[in-house]
Every structure is written in C-alpha cells, then in structure tokens.
Design a binder for these strands. Structure first.
Length: 372
DNA sequence: CATGCGTGGCA
DNA sequence: TTGCCAAGCAT
C-alpha cells in the first residue's frame, strides 16, 4: 500500500482515538455492545442521518427488544415501525436475516466474516461494522464517511461511487487499524467524517489529524472526494383514488418487489390524457367499482431519489348497487381472473388506517382525507 | 458494473 | 428553488 509509506500510523491512531474518546456523541446504540442493537442501528443508518434514525431506533427497540422478538413479529408490524424511514427493503431483509440467525445460529449473531456476510441486507460495510463494533474484530467498515476522510488524508482521487474504490480503502484500512481498538477506530473515523471532515466546509481547524492530511496541505480538501454527479429524477404523472363507501376507504398492498414494496397505498396509476377518466375506468375494470367524483384534493408532489410523482388526488364515492360487508370486498374477485394479487385490495374504516404502513407520498393523501 | 431503491435537511 | 448529501445493498 503505497499510501502508507512514510505515514505515521501509530501517531494517527493515537490522535484519532483520543479525539473520539473526548468527542463521541451519546447515541442510543452506544449504551452497550449488544450485537442485535448494533446490527439494527447499522441497517437504519444506511444512507440515513443519525438525527433521523434516533427516534426510529428507540421505538423499534421498545417494540422489538430482542432478536427473538423481531424474528417472531408480523412483517406488517415491522414495516409500520419503519414507516417514513425509507428504503423499506432494509426492514424486510433485516427480519429475514434475523429469522435466519434465530434458526441457523441459535439466536446468536455470527462473529465470522464469511457467515455474517451471507445475511440478507448485510453488505461489506455492515458486516465490518458489526464485527468491529460488537465483537472487536479487526475488520474495515468502509462507508461514505470513511471514504471521504481518507480520500482527503491521502489525497486519493478515485471516484468513490465505484465499487472498486471501496476495496482500495478496505486494504488501506487493514494497514491502519489497531488490533486492540477496532471498534473505536472505525467509529472514530465515521464520527470525524460526520462532525469535522464534513462534505461541505470541513472544520479543519478542529481536526485532530490535520498535520497528517495531504488533501489539506495541498489545499484540495474541498474538492475531495471525487464523486460522479447524479441524474435528475424523472417526472411521472400519477392519479390516485380515495374511494369511499359507508365511511370506509379502499386500500391495497403494493407488490412484494420494487418501489415501496409491501407498503399500503390508495389505488393509483400513471395517467396520460385525462386523470379523472382514467382512474374511474381503471377502478371499474380492475375492481368492478362504479364511482363518481366527490372531491378534488390538493395535488401531492413527492420526490424520490430517482423519480418524481405528481399525484392528482380524487375522492370518489361508490355508486350503484353495492353490498358492503365490513372487512370484505364488495366485489366478487372470482369474476376477475385477470386481477393480480398485487392489485387486490380491501376496505378499512378511517380509524383503522393508522395500522398500515404508508409511504410518505400516500401519507400526504391520507392526511387530506382525515382532515376533510 | 450500473441501476433501483426513500426521505429529510441544508445552503 | 434546486441540487447535494447521509453509518449501502441487491440485482
């Protein structure tokens, strides 16, 4: 590793560890070394800021205090506790992996790299984080913080978006990590990235390792790390129907793969020419509903990382001869052979709506319905 | 390897 | 307002 030639390794370790011990934040998942808690926190923290995670983590631990509790919980319950946090496959993969640990490892989170890496949702970063933080193993845990900090310290100009670059940093860290302080070393780098070596306007005057930073001495710390620019999200015109009958509303669960998988939503589709006509036609063809528009809600605009939904929201009343039985569909599904399970829905009372996990976009629709 | 996958905060 | 960013992973 050419970067480490002439680099004062032990001086760097000492300065970093000393700084971390003096400046580490008091976070809920730092109260003990329970591998289960470390694991949950690391999954929640993927692409998500600490301040956002804290309340979710606390509620999650209250409801699923142990690995066993999470393994036994209904999936809908897990998703409900993830509602609003985003990247929902994290929650489902976590539970899948927790069940695996319960069954294959007797409920003990594995402490071997090749075992833990097999678990759903546990990639190179998370594996390294759990192994080092919970078990003290000398494994690198390379996330965005770590790549930013070390790309500055060693003035590395590789694009950190590329998978190959992560491996470069892993090898670098294997030569830097102190055998007896792996947990604090890895956390210290991330903490330094979060508090001092930030993406914009890094606080170099407070940095414990400023003398060892090549990026700083070259005056290019602001230009690092090198990163590809993101594409613009693409606009999609959606129309959603809030279908009402007898004080109940019709919702459905999204398909088990893809965007917002397994979350609940109001029936909707992408429209081309006439939102109102197309949603009513869709509701008739898919669910045998005959409807008339009863209100227009405000448009809901929602931006994802890769696309934008502009949702026209219509409230529709069921008309015609409909026999409504609580908890049952007012249509006979057996007469709809083309109706996929994904599109199948059900009626709920307005009070029951809160039991289901909605993506934020449909929470906005729900809010308008309840405030009406 | 490139792309899909959420959301909220910030300048 | 818009773009960027945050403790990544699955496919």
């Amino acid at each position: 590793m050419k970067e480490l030639k002439d680099f004062p390794i032990s001086q760097f370790q000492d300065a970093l560890l000393s700084w971390f011990e003096r400046n580490m934040r008091d976070l809920p998942w730092r109260k003990d070394r329970d591998p289960y808690k470390i694991w949950v926190s690391e999954i929640m923290l993927q692409q998500t800021q600490v301040d956002t995670v804290i309340p979710y983590f606390n509620r999650f631990m209250e409801r699923f205090p142990s690995l066993e509790a999470l393994a036994e919980a209904p999936e809908d319950d897990v998703l409900k506790h993830w509602e609003g946090l985003g990247y929902y496959s994290r929650a489902r993969n976590l539970q899948t992996a927790v069940k695996e640990v319960q069954e294959q490892y007797g409920g003990k989170v594995p402490d071997e790299p090749n075992e833990i890496a097999k678990l759903k949702g546990v990639g190179p970063y998370t594996a390294g984080a759990i192994l080092s933080i919970a078990y003290g193993k000398p494994e690198p845990a390379v996330d965005g913080n770590v790549m930013r900090v070390f790309s500055r310290i060693f003035a590395i100009q590789e694009d950190i978006q590329k998978p190959k670059t992560r491996k470069l940093f892993e090898e670098l860290i294997r030569g830097l990590i102190p055998e007896n302080s792996t947990s604090y070393f890895n956390q210290g780098i991330m903490e330094l990235g979060a508090l001092i070596c930030r993406p914009k306007s890094p606080q170099c005057m407070f940095c414990p390792v400023i003398e060892m930073c090549q990026g700083r001495s070259l005056g290019i710390e602001q230009e690092l790390p090198v990163k590809q620019k993101k594409k613009k999200p693409k606009l999609k015109k959606m129309v959603a129907g809030v279908v009402l009958a007898n004080n109940m509303v019709f919702i459905r669960q999204r398909p088990e793969t893809g965007l917002l998988a397994k979350l609940y939503e109001f029936p909707n589709l992408e429209w081309e020419a006439d939102a109102e006509l197309e949603i009513s036609k869709y509701l008739y063809q898919t669910y045998d509903f005959q409807t008339e528009t009863s209100a227009r809600y405000e448009h809901v605009q929602h931006t994802f990382s890769h696309l934008i939904w502009d949702i026209t929201v219509l409230e529709l009343n069921l008309v015609g001869e409909v026999e409504l039985v609580e908890g049952q569909l007012p249509v006979r599904l057996e007469r709809q052979p083309f109706l996929t399970n994904a599109e199948a829905g059900f009626w709920v009372t307005l009070e029951e709506l809160d039991r289901y996990a909605f993506p934020v976009s449909h929470q906005k629709i729900k809010k308008q319905l309840l405030e009406k």
